[in-house]
Every structure is written in structure tokens, then in C-alpha cells.
Design a protein around this nucleic acid. Structure first.
Length: 567
RNA sequence: CGGGGCGUAGCUCAGUAUGGUUAGAGUACUUGGUUUGGGACCAAGGGGCCGGAGGUUCGAGUCCUCUCGCCCCGACCA
């Protein structure tokens, strides 16, 4: 491609709305242009990057025997009513009616459609397993689109679904998909982590998210500094404490603790570690129908993880509760404890199981109990409630857990029969019995990956594309196109590189050196060959974008050098 | 969906408090000239329904009402 004939509208100024590096540079370098909130046009360079990512995904899916399909973007609302998700998705589903007044939705994901193409066609266990996928535009009418391509309303996603006759076979396919996803991200040149995740309201097990590590990530991860373990904080686990602080010595007693309400005050008052205090966190749990106050008890040294807490009671939301509401229920703010208390439902953290020497509220103003043994609490329900902190132990190897930020670019999990059962998608097993398909689902955000590459690879001058994602690998830049010998040399090099299969752009624009260099850096081609005054000495220069290092070499060796650098 | 902010040239923004000839700058664009290794300089140009509708006024980019759009914080996010 000749730059003079390309359409690459670069700008010096960032769009005022852009905040994230990916948004700023993809806009400034002319990869994408915003149309409306959460809607983007892909310009020629952006489209090339998108296609490169799609090609890699297609290659890896083909290697696994997954089959590509293309389902209609507009889907009849009946399918969504059948699965019950028309309600669950709510306003995120964009609905509209056709001329015959039939209701349709724009597909936000395609579980229903994919099940519908298989059901009543795949009828025997002999036709299983089956893994089908598509790379397709999705639409979710997000309440608040933001961060450019990272959270758009219209986006490109690869969504795949597998169908099996046994959970063992699903497990095998799931592992194969995890390996394939790992290869895709490796080939893209991304640094990432596969982490354990919360399955969300939809249920299912073995939920794993593929996280590209970047400061601007929306998700917080707990990752082990020693082994491969990593988890979204919403689902992170930790090893039991290897050492526990010295326990306070006290027999069971009620103790006057005037105005001692916080964990800090309490541990200071008794000169003991917060480990031996019991923290009560009271929330209002909201269910599909109705709500109730719930008291979560955790050790004073821990923090409540809200997603875990929500899951522990099957609530759809937890909201804060006021001190007045607490008093109305009959609880004493600052002195809430689990003993002799039946005012609310309560959940105890697993770490408090069989705890001894504990200090907890006495449900009476200015009094706490000391020397409490929680093994008597067997009627309470226990669950994992705590937020993993930095420095906690890894549940696998005992290494240290650290927090980091990640961009979720993939999510795979085992659906089981969550969709196949209600949609009555069944096959006949060896015994001639009808069975719902056992399903797995594998998603990857393709347009989000474009942004993720830049979030992870940029500097203050612009994009730094990885070799697999670069719109062009080499930019042949002529410093001054009026120098006929320079242009002639560049033309020859341009043709030669292309004949060797290296994607090349020739910057033949009538612009000054600095202008072209700035564009090269903003756009982020991995290599820029600078053809200019050095040519008088039979030399050319190569600017390596990642480091901005400029190397000067003999013109004769340029092709070999480029092949070496692009390998 | 709650809270906040912003809509003026292709882009980034002044101008609005206190209404008053022909609405500005930078950048980008066109033409001519000079330059040619880090977004160069000189000169001359084209480009605007001041988001939209209604109102107040002799007169509205500016004041009032309504509306639409975009951004930020939060809630939400299979």
C-alpha cells in the first residue's frame, strides 16, 4: 500500500472524549472513528487489525475441529422468551418490530440461536461431540458504554458452543478450548493470565476468564507470584493462615465495652489481634421477589467480598442498610453478634468455623462477649465470604498472592444443560433415552482485543503493534520524495518486501521528515525503514517501534535484516 | 437508572457572567512561493442554521422553557 493512496486520517489532537490510551491512539492514528455512544466505525487500518485477529482465531479453531457458522444478527424474540432470558437481559436487549409487527432482538450473544440450529437436527449421541462457533457483531444496549472499544454497545465477538453426550467429554473439550485460547493470545503477543471466575447468575461451573494484563483493566485479579494460580477477586480463594496470632486468654464472659464499636477500637481495647474479633456486616439481600436483611460474619482482619456474599444467599443484589433500619429489626449497631440472635438470617465465613477465643458483639449496647467458641454455631450456614488481600497465601502452592488489573478478553465455562433443558434440545443416548445436550461455551472479544493490544503496548507517542496484529509490518519511509534516487531505491525495496510476503506500506507522501516519523510512531508499525541522506553512504536506517531504537545498516543487507527482525 | 459536566469551523477550543456592527483563534484543507532528518516558514483563500424547537426582546451564540446528543462518577454488565 502506498501511503499517498491510503486512507489513514491521523490527527495531532485527541478527541475530547477519549480517556484511555487505546481510545486516544486508535482514534488519533485513524484506526477507528466514533459514530455515537458505544458505536465505532473501523477505518482501513482498524479493519486490517480486526481481520488479523479473526484469522488467528479461525486458524486455531480449525486446528481443534471447531466449525465456523454465521447466525443471523436479528433474532426472533420468541427464542428469548423460550429461554427466559428476555426478562433477565432487560434493556440490554435491543428490541424492535418488523413490518408485520413481529418482535425481534439484536443478538447480544447466541446461546439460544446456536441451540436452535442443533436441536432436532443433531438427534443421536453418534453425532456428538460438536463444536460450532462464529465471529460476529453483537449488540448490547449497555447502560453506560465507555472506554472506546473496550466497552462498546456494538462489538465483534467470537462465540463458540460445544455439545456433548457426557460431562467427561465436555471436560475434554473445555481443556482443548482453554489450550486453544491460550495459543491465540500467545500468537497475538499478549501477556495474559487465565483466571478462575465467578460463573455469574447463569450458573455453570469451571468458569475461567482470559485476562490481558493492563493497568486500565476493569477487573481486579489475585495472582500468585510463584505458580499459575490466578482468580478474579470475585472468586479468588486463599490458603489458610500458616501462622495465627497469639490467642487472647479468656473464659467465656460478657464484658463492658463502652462505645467500642469498630474492629480497630475493639482489638485495641482488648490488646488482641483483629483475627480474634468477629466483624458483622449487615446488608439487605434483594431477591427476584422480596428482600431481607442478612448478617455476614467474618473475622475482624478480613473484608467482605460482595459477590461471594451475594452468591452465598442466592440474592441478585446486596444493598446497604441504615442504622435506623438495624434498630427497627432489633439489632444494636456496633454490637451485633451471632449468639442468641435470631433477628436476621446470617452467614458465617468459612474461616470462622470452629474458631475459639473470639470476641463478638453481645447484641446489647456497650457489651461484647469474650472467649467465644464458634463451633456451637452449627445451625448457621457457612460460606466463603472474604475478599482475598494482597499478601495472602496461594491456595495451590502457598506462594504470595498479588493484585493486578486485567481486561477480560475471553470467558469460557461449562454450561451443562442450563440451555438445552429449557429449550428441549435433546438427543437419544445408547439406550434410546432422550437426554439434553451437555454444553460448553467459549467467548472471545475480538474488537476488545484490538483495544487490549494497545492498552498493553503503547507509549507516549502512540501505538506499538505486536507482529501478529500490526496493520503493516514494515513502513518504508522516504525522507524527501524529491530525491529521485531515494524514491527509486524505496520503490524497489517496497516491491521486494512484498514479494517476500512481508506486509509493507510505502510512505511516499510529500511531507517533511518529522511529520512522517511522528505518524509512523503514532500508528505503530513494528519497523520503519528510513531512506534518506544515509543512502549517499550506501546505508539505510531502521526504527524499531517498540524501543524507538534506530539502527543504521548497509543498504545491501536490508532485506536480510528485516527478515531477521520480523521473524 | 441516579449525580455532575459539555454541545460554537473537519478537529481542539475562546466568546455566554453584564444581549448590540460582518462570530474568533490554533490546527487541518486549497493555491503560490521558500524549505527538506523530528509535526517548518511567508502570503492569499474556502469553510459556521453557535445541537434542535419554542419563547422574551427593537435586537439572542449570549436570557427563559422544553428537547436531543455526547462525556465523567456511581448502579448495572450472560
Amino acid at each position: 500500500m502506498r501511503f499517498s493512496r491510503a486512507y489513514i486520517p491521523t490527527t495531532k489532537e485527541s478527541p475530547k472524549d477519549a480517556q484511555l490510551p487505546s481510545h486516544i491512539y486508535l482514534s488519533r492514528a485513524g484506526f477507528v472513528a466514533q459514530v455515537a455512544s458505544g458505536l465505532y466505525n473501523f477505518l482501513p487500518l482498524g479493519k486490517r487489525v480486526l481481520r488479523k485477529i479473526e484469522t488467528i482465531i479461525n486458524e486455531e479453531m480449525a486446528a481443534c475441529g471447531a466449525l465456523e457458522v454465521d447466525l443471523s444478527f436479528v433474532t426472533p424474540a420468541e427464542l428469548w422468551e423460550e429461554s427466559g432470558r428476555i426478562e433477565k437481559f432487560g434493556k440490554e436487549l435491543l428490541r424492535f418490530r418488523d413490518r408485520k409487527d413481529n418482535l425481534f432482538v439484536l443478538g447480544p450473544t447466541h446461546e439460544e440461536m446456536m441451540v436452535s440450529i442443533v436441536r432436532n437436527r443433531v438427534t443421536s449421541y453418534k453425532q456428538l461431540p460438536l463444536n460450532v462457533y462464529q465471529i460476529k457483531t453483537k449488540f448490547r444496549d449497555e447502560a453506560r458504554p465507555r472506554f472506546g472499544l473496550m466497552r462498546a454497545r456494538e462489538f465483534v465477538m467470537k462465540d463458540g458452543y460445544s455439545f456433548h453426550a457426557s460431562t467427561e467429554d465436555l471436560d475434554r473439550e473445555f481443556d482443548a478450548m482453554e489450550a486453544a485460547y491460550k495459543r491465540i493470545l500467545e500468537r497475538l503477543g499478549l501477556s495474559f493470565r487465565i483466571v478462575e471466575a465467578d460463573s455469574g447468575a447463569i450458573g455453570g461451573t469451571g468458569s475461567k476468564e482470559l485476562m490481558v494484563l493492563a493497568q486500565s483493566g476493569e477487573d481486579t485479579l489475585a495472582v500468585c507470584d510463584t505458580c499459575e494460580y490466578g482468580a478474579n477477586v470475585e472468586a479468588a480463594r486463599r490458603a489458610p493462615r500458616s501462622t495465627v496470632p497469639e490467642a487472647p486468654e479468656a473464659d467465656f464472659a460478657k464484658f463492658k465495652t463502652p462505645n467500642i464499636k469498630s474492629i480497630d477500637d475493639l482489638s485495641a481495647f482488648f490488646h488482641t489481634d483483629p483475627f480474634y474479633t468477629l466483624k458483622a456486616v449487615i446488608k439487605r439481600a434483594v431477591y427476584t421477589e422480596g428482600s431481607e436483611p442478612v448478617c455476614f460474619f467474618i473475622r475482624g482482619c478480613d473484608e467482605l467480598q460482595e459477590v461471594k456474599a451475594r452468591n452465598s444467599v442466592g440474592a441478585i443484589d446486596l444493598v446497604d442498610i441504615t442504622e435506623e433500619e438495624l434498630r427497627e429489626i432489633g439489632l444494636v449497631p456496633g454490637f451485633v453478634g451471632p449468639l442468641d440472635q435470631d433477628k436476621t438470617r446470617f452467614v458465617m465465613d468459612n474461616n470462622t468455623r470452629d474458631a475459639t477465643s473470639m470476641i463478638c458483639g453481645a447484641n446489647e449496647t456497650d457489651y461484647h462477649f469474650v472467649g467465644v467458641t464458634l463451633s456451637v454455631m452449627n445451625e448457621a450456614s457457612f460460606a466463603d465470604l472474604v475478599a482475598v488481600q494482597e499478601g495472602d497465601g496461594c491456595p495451590h502452592c502457598g506462594g504470595k498472592l498479588l493484585h493486578t488489573k486485567g481486561i477480560e478478553v475471553g470467558h469460557i465455562f461449562k454450561l451443562g444443560t442450563v440451555y438445552s433443558a429449557p429449550l428441549k434440545a435433546e438427543y437419544l443416548d445408547e439406550n434410546g433415552r432422550s437426554q439434553p445436550f451437555i454444553m460448553g461455551t467459549y467467548g472471545m472479544g475480538v474488537s476488545r482485543l484490538v483495544a487490549a493490544v494497545i492498552e498493553q503496548h503503547h507509549d507516549e507517542r502512540g501505538c506499538i503493534w505486536t507482529h501478529a496484529t500490526a496493520p503493516y509490518m514494515v513502513n518504508v519511509m522516504v525522507s524527501n520524495i524529491k530525491e529521485e534516487a531515494h524514491m527509486a531505491y524505496a520503490e524497489t525495496l517496497y516491491l521486494e518486501l512484498q514479494s517476500r510476503g512481508i506486509e509493507t506500506i510505502l510512505d511516499d507522501r510529500k511531507e517533511r521528515f518529522g511529520f512522517k516519523m511522528s505518524d509512523a510512531e503514532l500508528i505503530g508499525f513494528p519497523l520503519t525503514v528510513i531512506i534518506g541522506k544515509e543512502l549517499e553512504n550506501e546505508q539505510v536506517q531502521i526504527m524499531i517501534r517498540a524501543t524507538r531504537e534506530i539502527i543504521t545498516i548497509d543498504a545491501a543487507g536490508i532485506l536480510d535484516k528485516i527478515e531477521e527482525l520480523t521473524r
